[in-house]
């Protein structure tokens, strides 16, 4: 098994687990959004890694290379990153409205989950 693939799958599993732990245990809303953003990065890395072919080059046509990686996940992730930042900005604006109404960011309700 290729070393680069192993390293990036290990990173994906760790980032998703860290994000899940943060979403489950934290009570600060800003911290929950930071955890969700970390999970977003992990999911993008997972899609790119699934499309990787050992020994392939980037999908730009060149006469010197014969083997290319799968271009379709790259096209999907390219747009997903840009959508991610705009959705994060919308969520943070809702958070600013919440803070101006309640004066705190901590969730003080009963059961979290």
């Amino acid at each position: 098994m290729n070393g680069v693939i192993m390293a990036s799958y290990f990173t994906v599993a760790s980032l998703l687990s860290i994000g899940l732990y943060g979403v489950m245990t934290k009570r600060n809303l800003m911290k929950i959004f930071i955890s969700l953003s970390i999970m977003d990065t992990g999911v993008n890395l997972m899609l790119i890694t699934i499309g990787y072919l050992p020994g392939g080059t980037a999908p730009i046509e060149n006469a010197n290379f014969a083997k290319y990686v799968d271009p379709l996940p790259q096209a999907l992730v390219l747009t997903a990153i840009v959508i991610g930042v705009s959705v994060t900005a919308l969520a943070l604006v809702l958070l600013i409205k919440y803070h101006s109404k309640k004066g705190t960011l901590e969730y003080k309700g009963g059961m979290k989950w």
């Binding site: 192993m6 799958y9 599993a13 760790s14 998703l16 687990s17 899940l20 732990y21 245990t25 699934i50």
Partner: peptide, 24 residues
Amino acid sequence: RKQASVVITVIFFLSLTFAFYQIS
């Protein structure tokens, strides 16, 4: 709840590792 979260996270990590091993 903290222990339960840690247990769930570890189970999630192990199942992800298994799935990625199968894929690769």
